[in-house]
Every structure is written in C-alpha cells, then in structure tokens.
Simulated assay, not measured.
Amino acid sequence: MSQPSYTEHERHGAAAPQVAGTNVMAILSLVFAFVFSPAGIVLGHIAKKQIRRTGEQGDGLATAGLVLSYIFTILGLIGFALILVAAMSTGTSSA
C-alpha cells in the first residue's frame, strides 16, 4: 500500500506540525552585544521573556547575547573610568 499524499492528509484533518522559528530578539541581542552592548542587554531580556511565553527557539542565542553584553558593558565602564582617572591626573598643576 502506498503512503497517502499530502492532500489525503489534509482531507482527513491531519495538520502539518508547526515548527517554531528562532526568536528575532535573541538574534538581535547577540548582534547588539558587539555593536551597542546596553541594547543587547535589553533585547536579551525581552527575548528570554518571549521565548518562555511562545516556545520559540533561540534561548541559547539570547543567553549568549546577554552574557556578552554584560561583559562588554562592564569592560566599557572600566575603560571609561580609567580614561577619566588618567585625564584628571594629567591636569595642569600650579607649581
């Protein structure tokens, strides 16, 4: 006996399984981790919430985006603080 075609499945009411795609916010979180890390943090948290609600894929991408965004934000703040301290220490002296 041959297998039923797609149209036979459709007539009998069998639905094709829906495959959940990757969450767009998760992808953007990873991209923005390298471009503008504070935005990557926000997008990563939004993605995690959407993934929990919808069951989409991309939880690993959102996690990676969050981790990298936090690391780059912290490194950026440390770098800014070092530049600020260096600029203040090279100020003119009245000696």
Results as ranks from 00 to 15, higher is better:
residue 1 M to P: 01
residue 2 S to E: 14
residue 3 Q to V: 09
residue 3 Q to K: 13
residue 3 Q to S: 13
residue 4 P to G: 11
residue 4 P to L: 11
residue 5 S to C: 06
residue 5 S to P: 03
residue 6 Y to P: 03
residue 6 Y to C: 09
residue 6 Y to E: 15
residue 7 T to L: 14
residue 8 E to N: 13
residue 8 E to V: 14
residue 8 E to I: 13
residue 8 E to K: 13
residue 9 H to V: 09
residue 10 E to T: 14
residue 10 E to G: 11
residue 13 G to Q: 05
residue 13 G to M: 11
residue 14 A to V: 13
residue 15 A to E: 15
residue 15 A to I: 10
residue 16 A to S: 11
residue 17 P to F: 11
residue 18 Q to A: 09
residue 18 Q to Y: 09
residue 18 Q to M: 06
residue 20 A to D: 07
residue 20 A to W: 03
residue 21 G to P: 14
residue 21 G to F: 07
residue 25 M to V: 00
residue 25 M to C: 02
residue 25 M to S: 08
residue 26 A to Y: 00
residue 27 I to T: 15
residue 28 L to M: 15
residue 29 S to Y: 04
residue 29 S to T: 07
residue 29 S to V: 08
residue 30 L to V: 00
residue 31 V to I: 14
residue 31 V to D: 04
residue 32 F to I: 05
residue 33 A to V: 10
residue 33 A to Q: 09
residue 34 F to Y: 14
residue 34 F to N: 06
residue 35 V to C: 09
residue 35 V to K: 05
residue 35 V to W: 06
residue 35 V to E: 07
residue 38 P to V: 03
residue 42 V to T: 09
residue 43 L to G: 00
residue 43 L to D: 00
residue 44 G to A: 14
residue 44 G to V: 02
residue 45 H to V: 10
residue 46 I to S: 02
residue 46 I to G: 02
residue 47 A to Q: 02
residue 48 K to E: 13
residue 50 Q to W: 03
residue 52 R to N: 11
residue 54 T to M: 05
residue 54 T to D: 12
residue 54 T to P: 00
residue 55 G to F: 04
residue 57 Q to V: 04
residue 58 G to L: 02
residue 59 D to K: 04
residue 60 G to T: 10
residue 60 G to A: 15
residue 61 L to Q: 04
residue 61 L to M: 04
residue 63 T to R: 07
residue 63 T to Y: 05
residue 64 A to L: 10
residue 65 G to A: 07
residue 65 G to M: 07
residue 66 L to S: 01
residue 67 V to M: 10
residue 67 V to Y: 06
residue 70 Y to L: 08
residue 71 I to Q: 03
residue 74 I to T: 07
residue 74 I to A: 13
residue 74 I to G: 07
residue 75 L to I: 06
residue 75 L to R: 03
residue 76 G to E: 06
residue 78 I to F: 10
residue 79 G to W: 02
residue 79 G to I: 09
residue 82 L to A: 13
residue 82 L to T: 11
residue 83 I to G: 08
residue 84 L to C: 05
residue 84 L to A: 13
residue 85 V to C: 10
residue 85 V to W: 13
residue 85 V to H: 09
residue 87 A to N: 14
residue 87 A to E: 15
residue 87 A to G: 15
residue 88 M to W: 10
residue 89 S to K: 08
residue 89 S to H: 04
residue 89 S to P: 00
residue 90 T to E: 12
residue 91 G to W: 12
residue 92 T to L: 14
residue 93 S to P: 02
residue 94 S to K: 08
residue 95 A to R: 11
